[in-house]
Design a protein around this nucleic acid. Structure first.
Lengths: 111, 111
DNA sequence: TCAATAGTTCTAGAGTTCCGAACTATCAAA
DNA sequence: TTTGATAGTTCGGAACTCTAGAACTATTGA
């Protein structure tokens, strides 16, 4: 297993963020992490929006979020703890993440 | 040639928008259209960010933006006139498009 | 009718994504 | 110190998507 890759703040791109969040499952995971006061284990998202996500797929989704610069993952014993990088991203793209989370939550509420 | 498909406002999705704008060329085209007071022809974007875009690719990009609900395209004689649907999208996802355009322009300015 | 211009569609190759199977890493109990 | 359990990663093939050249359609003006 290679060490986990987290891009530097300057290497985070707008299109990278939009691509990472352009997937229903991934945006749901990200909102879940960003909205929690605590770090979240990957396994906390084995079901997302009432759908079961296979663990290999889940691992790929976390990798995508990590490489886009949206989350930071650290191994803690047998599990991975994931936290959002919202505060950092906010300094680079002010207002972007709140707008996306807001749009996600507003849509979720509608149904 | 089939008639052009424009989704109804209610059928516009967050992930659809993020996917459409997760491509460097497409986000540049969209910001160009959204930032202009006038309708833009497709051919106005044969070069985007100093890169030549083949016309079949350009046509696909416009289709993607159209199907995401971000632009409206109307044939005017021999050409297509494209306008943004920002105002409509704003009513569905308030603040989202301005945040993305803002992030795009801020990043462009940096270099 | 013909030619020119603007976009679209077709299609093949390149690249990406999904997910089951096999793997690795960590820890705790025997 | 093996063994087992749990958590996550990597591999590989099938399905899907994207790019761009070639051929096509639509409109207009000569």
């Amino acid at each position: 297993m290679r060490p986990l890759a987290h891009p530097a703040l300057d290497d985070i791109t707008l299109t990278g963020i939009l691509h990472a969040l352009s997937d229903e499952t991934r945006v749901a995971i990200f909102v879940g992490i960003a909205g929690s006061a605590y770090s979240q284990r990957c396994a906390a998202f084995t079901t997302v929006s009432e759908k079961t996500v296979p663990k290999s797929t889940l691992s790929q989704h976390f990798k995508a979020l990590r490489e886009a610069g949206l989350i930071r993952s650290e191994r803690q014993g047998v599990e991975m703890l994931n936290t959002s990088r919202c505060a950092e991203v906010e300094t680079r793209f002010p207002g972007l993440i709140p707008a996306i989370i807001g749009a996600y939550l507003a849509k979720a509420k509608q149904r």
